[in-house]
Design a protein around this nucleic acid. Structure first.
Lengths: 194, 194, 194, 194
DNA sequence: AATGAATGAGGGTTCATTCAT
DNA sequence: GATGAATGAACCCTCATTCAT
């Protein structure tokens, strides 16, 4: 990549980052192109030079976001930590780009991209799922997970917890419940039978 | 209530119902007053005769929604069904006003009402929480729930599952997993020890 | 006039008075029919039963206003006070319905009715002008007014002073100047030559 | 100022001029942004690119107007014409931006600016008042004005006449009375004593 | 390639006026 | 005759997007 290309990429990333920041703070619909342009210190038209329209900008921001979070996710999975710790980190660690993610942003993506591009599906099936499978297999091998459970079901649970924990309105409330929640995750509401 | 009053109430409810329907299908911001008016078969101004502005309309729609769902929730709790069935119904039965609820609508409310009116907090603390407590006590008495678990922690799980199940993008996927998910809820990922 | 008619007249006057009050306080354009209805404690439609539309309502309010002020004006003119005192009263006394009249109201009338109905012209020519003529003749006879001056010119001056004094933004400032202003009116800027 | 800036200024002035023209002809409230846009041959949004909202547009139009009128006023005052002619020009010459000024426009500004910005007060006290003082002193020195009269009182008269002459509804009527009115201004209703 | 300027379409809201009881 | 309810038209303003330089 020559200097020219590099500067171009840099500018593009500036726009993506500004957009992501704003989307996560205020939601998608509340953020205008003009606002993004001002934050990224470019003109509105420059944005249109890099991205077809707001729709594809959102799409690209999302991909940028997923790629970034995925890298951090990967680190946890391949680490040498014991299984329960890994699970806890995946669920509770705010390892995402931002500490708090605007839910509307998240929802919008889920809604939009479950229909068309289906990028989220694709990336999860291609990348996350194998990692999760590996993680769950590890759990099953070490006796932490019932071997009869399907990966889909466990993944649903993990995903759900992960999502929920990230919600601004929820996070504060459950902080003191972390241990209990983890316990229920492992042993169910019926509790550990010793 | 005379005929006048009754027709007025009826029309108001029409607007509320149309709004709720649209909000749940498309989200709040995407739905214009004009659209609501057309759906409810009234003029835009009529809406303004009943509700001060869009903001308070949303508020009122929300209250309408909460009240309605709560009635159905109550029915389940006080029924004579065995505990596990009750829990399953609370979580999985689409007892809500609508089969599918738009998440942005839900998020908006959560966000909004965690700040101001705090109506959701109030109704949950005053009405839902006691019912939940009673239900959980029932579960503990019958050995379905570890007596050491706090109501808050269990409620978190129930609420999370309930919310998640309602999401458009999620519902279809987990339908075949219902049984497994219930199992995890009861026995954790470690599974039932027999 | 029977009791029925009387009640009708009473209601009509209520509306007129409410309108006048509001017009003078806030100006014409800022006052809605709904506001008048609420102030007069009638329904909006009732207003339309008495007055064709807002336009004619304004017209009628104006006539109501002019008639009322005219009565008070007449009192001064026919009184036994000496000429200079009469003039001063006509100009400076806030003998109008309201202490302060919203200028927009006044202007609107002037503008509107100098074109069409021309009611103000008519009433002034028919009623005020003769009185003014009489007053000015009195002044000329007593040596207070140059006999060479036309009634129109003097009337313009009196009217102008009267209007100006009534303006909210002007009144306070000129209060301490009353005497000087009267002097200039009588003797001009060149002053009394003794 | 480069070509960019200059064209921008030009366009801004177009909008100001169109607004002023319309405000003066029809009053402020009756003139919509759409109408201004059409008159200035720009889109509505362009207006919003230059002015925050209608309120500040009105404000800026007013400043534009005051500045322009003041320049012409200054020319008269510093000219070499004899005193009576100057006075007559100040009062009667339609030296203002427009031949006729809508009174509602004027009133609105007076009302508005007696409260907040107070721009009119400021400009009059800082700029107009000194000029007027100088003019009146000239009149006193040359025996045209009674030295005992306060500047405030004379200014009141001048201002009043100036305002009144500008009124659409008044102008036509007093045109034939110009001479008489000037006489009254100089010598009062009692007339010149020779 | 990048920008300031411009725009069509649409959104929420208000108002004078009419309908239906 | 009086009212509550309803409405079409208009207004201010915002936004994603394009034009012209």
């Amino acid at each position: 990549m020559d200097g020219f290309q590099r500067r171009r990429e840099q500018k593009k990333q500036n726009i993506l980052e500004a957009s992501l920041r704003l989307f996560m703070d205020y939601g998608i619909q509340k953020v205008s192109i003009a606002e993004i342009a001002k934050t990224a210190k470019v003109s509105q038209v420059t944005i249109y030079n890099y991205f077809q329209n707001k729709h594809t900008l959102i799409h690209d921001v999302f991909i940028y976001y997923v790629d970034q979070s995925f890298k951090r996710f990967e680190v946890i999975i391949v680490s040498e930590a014991p299984f329960p710790e890994k699970i806890q980190q995946v669920i509770f660690n705010k390892q995402e780009v931002a500490a708090q993610i605007n839910q509307e942003f998240y929802q919008h993506l889920m809604q939009e991209y479950s229909k068309e591009g289906n990028y989220i599906e694709k990336i999860y099936n291609e990348k996350a799922l194998p990692y999760f499978s590996k993680l769950f297999q590890e759990g099953k091998d070490q006796g932490y997970i019932d071997p009869g459970l399907s990966d889909e079901a466990i993944m649903f649970y993990v995903q759900m917890l992960k999502d929920y924990v990230q919600r601004e309105d929820v996070y504060a409330k459950i902080l003191p419940l972390t241990e209990e929640i983890t316990n229920i995750f492992f042993y169910g509401i019926i509790g550990k039978k010793e």
